[in-house]
Amino acid sequence: MKFDFNSTKPLFQQVNDEIEAAILSGAFPEESQVPSTTEISKSFQINPATVLKGMNLLVDHDLLEKKRGIGMFVKTGAQAKVKTIRKDKFLHESVVTVVKQAQALGITEAELKELIERGYQQ
Rank of each mutant, 00 (worst) to 15 (best):
M1P: 03
K2A: 06
K2R: 08
F3A: 03
F3S: 01
F3G: 02
F3V: 06
D4S: 04
F5W: 04
F5A: 01
N6D: 15
S7T: 02
T8A: 13
T8F: 14
K9G: 05
P10Y: 01
F12R: 05
Q13Y: 10
Q13N: 12
Q13K: 14
Q14L: 06
V15F: 04
N16C: 12
N16E: 12
N16A: 14
N16H: 14
N16R: 15
D17L: 10
D17K: 15
E18W: 00
I19C: 09
I19G: 08
E20L: 09
E20V: 07
A22L: 14
A22I: 03
A22H: 13
I23F: 07
L24S: 11
S25Y: 05
S25M: 07
S25A: 07
G26C: 01
G26I: 02
G26E: 03
A27P: 04
P29Q: 02
S32Q: 07
S32F: 12
Q33T: 12
T37G: 01
I40S: 00
I40D: 02
S41Q: 06
S43A: 10
Q45E: 15
Q45R: 15
I46C: 02
N47Q: 05
A49C: 11
A49H: 10
T50L: 04
V51D: 00
K53W: 01
G54D: 01
M55A: 02
M55K: 08
N56Y: 04
L57I: 12
L57G: 03
L57V: 08
L58K: 04
D62Y: 02
D62N: 09
L63M: 09
L63S: 08
L64F: 01
L64P: 00
E65P: 03
K66Y: 07
K66N: 15
K67S: 05
K67N: 04
R68Y: 06
G69L: 10
G69F: 04
G71E: 00
G71I: 01
M72F: 07
M72R: 12
V74S: 00
K75L: 10
T76L: 14
T76Q: 14
T76E: 14
G77T: 10
A78Q: 03
Q79N: 09
Q79R: 07
K81E: 03
K81V: 05
V82I: 15
V82K: 08
V82D: 10
V82S: 15
K83H: 05
I85R: 13
I85N: 11
I85E: 11
R86V: 03
K87E: 15
K87S: 09
K87A: 13
K87F: 14
K87M: 09
D88P: 05
D88N: 12
D88T: 14
K89R: 13
K89S: 12
F90A: 14
H92E: 13
E93L: 06
S94P: 06
V95W: 11
V95M: 08
V95Y: 14
V96L: 11
T97V: 15
T97Y: 12
V99K: 00
V99E: 04
V99N: 05
V99M: 01
K100F: 07
Q101T: 06
A102W: 05
L105Q: 14
L105I: 10
I107F: 09
T108Y: 11
T108D: 06
E109I: 03
A110K: 09
L112N: 08
L112T: 07
K113D: 13
K113N: 12
K113G: 06
L115T: 06
I116V: 12
I116E: 09
E117T: 13
E117W: 10
R118M: 13
G119D: 13
G119E: 11
Q121K: 08
Q122V: 09
